[in-house]
């Protein structure tokens, strides 16, 4: 079933890609092929392979249960928040928070995950910023 859904999604993606390719504006100074042809070929391959996947599905993959899916969704939300708050909160704070969360969800104890988080953040800060001179996001506190 997963493969059938995936195949249908792929076909829709191919159609969307092809439609989007057709709307590309041709420049008046174009070569013999133009900017549309290759994307259309790709869309065709995408569509055909998706159709084959939908018609001949593989055995069902092992999907995680709802709780595990929620776990992944939560981790993704945390990472997105991290990306957004990085320039605001500064590298050290944001990274410590995100790493603590990930370590906690992977089964560390509370104290263990805080230590991992702070250790990761400070470690990266020292190695990458102080030693290697890479510029990291600077927060209100200057780090």
């Amino acid at each position: 079933m997963s493969d059938r859904i995936f195949g249908v999604f792929g076909i829709l993606l191919a159609i969307g890609f092809a439609m989007s390719a057709l709307t590309i504006e041709e420049s008046f100074l174009s070569d013999a092929v133009g900017p549309k042809a290759f994307p259309l070929i790709i869309a065709a391959i995408l569509g055909i392979s998706s159709a084959v996947i939908a018609i001949k599905p593989d055995p069902e993959p092992h999907w995680p249960n709802f709780a595990r899916l929620a776990e992944i969704a939560a981790a993704v939300v945390v990472m997105v928040l991290y990306a957004q708050f990085l320039p605001v909160a500064g590298f050290v704070l944001a990274t410590a928070a995100a790493a603590t969360y990930l370590s906690w969800r992977l089964g560390s104890t509370i104290i263990g995950s805080v230590l991992t988080g702070v250790g990761t953040s400070v470690g990266i800060y020292v190695i990458f910023h102080l030693v290697l001179g890479l510029s990291l996001a600077r927060g209100p506190l200057g780090f």
């Binding site: 790493a99 370590s103 560390s108 990266i124």
Partner: peptide
């Protein structure tokens, strides 16, 4: 991995 994976994620972001 509970220590390794956060480090991997953070190094990727950095």
């Amino acid at each position: 991995p509970r220590i390794l994976m956060p480090v991997v994620a953070m190094v990727s972001f950095v």
